[in-house]
Measured scan of single mutants.
Amino acid sequence: ITFYEDRAFQGRSYETTTDCPNLQPYFSRCNSIRVESGCWMLYERPNYQGQQYLLRRGEYPDYQQWMGLSDSIRSC
């Protein structure tokens, strides 16, 4: 899974293949995501807390595409 700070896969990015309890050191906001394979559970707060979103393989050019309430993703 790759997270992008800006919409349409622009700006600083961070890629991971494992669970991350705290994504804050890698980016300040998340406006687009690419899921290369599988399913990922994302959380608005660190340590798997807050609103959660299940994303399947695909491209999400805007946080509203995954029904996000904000551009805050802090763990996965």
Rank of each mutant, 00 (worst) to 15 (best):
D6L: 12
Q64L: 07
T2R: 05
S28D: 15
D62S: 07
Q64C: 14
R12T: 12
Y53E: 05
L23I: 08
C76W: 02
R56C: 14
Q24G: 12
D62F: 13
E15T: 12
N31V: 08
D19H: 07
V35C: 03
A8C: 14
G58C: 04
F27K: 01
Q52V: 07
G68Y: 14
D19V: 06
P61C: 07
G11S: 05
N31I: 04
G38I: 04
Q52I: 06
M41V: 06
C20A: 15
P25F: 07
S13V: 13
T2N: 11
Y53D: 02
Y53F: 10
G58I: 02
Q24C: 05
T17V: 10
E15K: 15
Y48L: 04
S75C: 13
W40F: 15
Y60M: 02
R56E: 11
Q10K: 15
S70E: 09
G11K: 04
D62N: 08
R29G: 09
L42S: 03
Y14P: 00
S37E: 05
R34H: 04
F3S: 00
G11Q: 02
Q24A: 06
E59M: 09
Y43S: 14
T17L: 06
R34P: 01
M41T: 13
R12A: 08
D6P: 01
Q64Y: 04
P25K: 11
Y60H: 03
I73K: 01
S32P: 01
S75Q: 03
T16F: 14
E36F: 05
L54R: 06
N47W: 07
Q51P: 03
Q49S: 13
Q52L: 10
Q51C: 04
T18V: 09
T18Q: 03
Q24D: 15
M67D: 06
D62H: 06
I33Y: 00
R57L: 08
Y63N: 06
F9S: 02
S32E: 00
R56G: 04
Y48G: 06
R45I: 04
N47Q: 04
S13L: 04
D71C: 10
E59R: 04
E59S: 13
L42T: 06
C39L: 07
R29S: 13
E15C: 06
P61Q: 08
G50D: 02
D62K: 08
R56Q: 11
R45K: 14
T18W: 12
C30V: 06
R57Y: 03
L69N: 08
T18L: 09
Y48C: 14
Y14S: 08
C76R: 00
E44W: 02
G50N: 02
Y63I: 09
R45D: 06
E15L: 08
I73C: 13
L54T: 03
S75R: 02
P21M: 14
L54E: 11
G11C: 03
Y14R: 08
Q24P: 03
Y48M: 15
N22G: 04
C39W: 12
S28K: 15
D6E: 09
S70P: 14
Y53T: 05
Q49K: 08
S13I: 12
Y43F: 04
E15V: 07
S75F: 00
S72P: 09
R74Y: 15
L23V: 11
P25A: 11
Y4E: 01
F9L: 15
Y4L: 00
A8K: 15
D62G: 10
S28I: 10
C39T: 10
E5W: 03
Y53C: 06
R74G: 12
S28R: 08
L54G: 07
S13P: 10
E5A: 09
T16A: 14
E5C: 01
L23T: 07
D19S: 06
L69K: 06
D19Y: 04
Y63E: 05
C76H: 02
Q49T: 12
S72F: 15
Q49A: 10
M41Y: 12
G38R: 04
E44I: 10
N22E: 06
L69S: 04
Y14A: 09
Q65P: 12
L69T: 13
L23D: 01
Q65A: 11
R12G: 12
T16K: 10
L55R: 01
Q52E: 12
Q64V: 10
Q64F: 06
E5N: 04
Y14D: 00
Y43C: 15
G38V: 07
S28T: 11
R12Q: 12
F9T: 02
C20F: 03
S75V: 03
D62C: 04
S75E: 01
G11L: 02
F27Y: 02
Y48F: 02
P25R: 15
R7E: 11
Q51E: 10
Y43P: 00
S13K: 15
M67Q: 08
A8M: 12
R56A: 10
G68P: 10
S28F: 13
Q65D: 10
D6G: 10
G11F: 00
T18F: 10
Y14W: 15
M67C: 04
Y14N: 04
Y26K: 08
S70G: 10
C20N: 15
E44Y: 04
P21T: 11
S70V: 14
Q49L: 12
S72L: 08
M41R: 10
I73A: 13
F9G: 05
G58E: 03
G58T: 06
R34F: 06
R74I: 12
N22R: 12
Q24M: 03
Q49D: 09
L42E: 00
A8E: 15
Y4P: 00
G58V: 00
Y63M: 05
E59Y: 11
Y43H: 13
T16R: 07
R45T: 11
R34K: 07
F3C: 02
L42D: 01
N22K: 14
C39V: 11
Y4Q: 00
S75T: 01
R7G: 10
Q65T: 06
W66G: 13
Y43E: 00
R12E: 14
L69Y: 11
L54M: 08
T17F: 04
G11T: 03
E5L: 03
I73V: 14
L54F: 06
R7Y: 03
W40I: 11
F9Q: 03
P25W: 15
W66I: 10
R74E: 10
